[in-house]
Amino acid sequence: MSKLEARGEGYEAEHVHSVYEEIASHFSSTRYKPWPIVERFLKELPDGAVGADVGCGNGKYLTVNPRVFIVASDRSTNLVKIARQHQPHVAVVADNLSLPHPLYCFDFAISIAVIHHLSTSARRVEAVRAVLDLLRRPSGDVGDSESRALIYVWALEQKDSRRGWDEGHEQDVMVPWVIKGGQKAKRVKGQRKRKSEAEHQDSEEQTLAEQLQSKTYMRYYHLYRKGELRHDIEEAGGVVIDSGYEKDNWWAIASPKRDTGPIGS
């Protein structure tokens, strides 16, 4: 990663947001199986619970529990177009640091494989705080269940994965997303037609061959080391209720601390 490039919003616009917008449909076709921890969290919710899915991607978690209602959001319009097809849920385009929801209006929230895309420590803590700010504060009544958020991030410690990262590795990494040539065949065909109007046969075939090769997009990730997610949650004014490691990821279920008030107070 270039040390000259300052991280922050502009950096993420180039190395995260624009990539997902480009790869949305291929990405979505590979994202259909819910991760077990997320599935369990959603299925254990009381019937009628209303929650948010922050960074919903293609909306694969919207269908897990038909007895809850989810207001989903994602930074990528192309992914929201896919996510909103899951009835009766709704999906809007939003940034996870500027969510368009009233404070404390949801019973639960999930943010799965999202916060690791923020490129500074302060922005990651801010993203956790934004999720916690969605959660209903307990009324104090007997039997009032605590509102909870499930947060899931990629782990640094994944020596058994094909990527082979582990303790001691650089935590800020660029990860390739590869779309094989064949999957872009349709677009190539269109480009070929346009090309043929201006260029002669030889160069046209060369271009086509190049385009049929794989196209690689690089996405920025911050790989979380052990304990770091808990640290970010506490820094954001949350309490970790449960946490663990599942298949190359760290996860935590968090609630707002009892005495945490509105943003900025």
């Binding site: 209303v50 207001v71 709704v90 939003a94 940034d95 368009p100 009233p102 509105p262 943003i263 900025g264």
Partner: peptide
Amino acid sequence: MKLLTLNFLTCAIKTCKTSPSSFP
């Protein structure tokens, strides 16, 4: 966008959220 969505939406600008006039 279903009208029900408006029940859960407000302004995305942080300083608006504490103002009652930002909802709906």
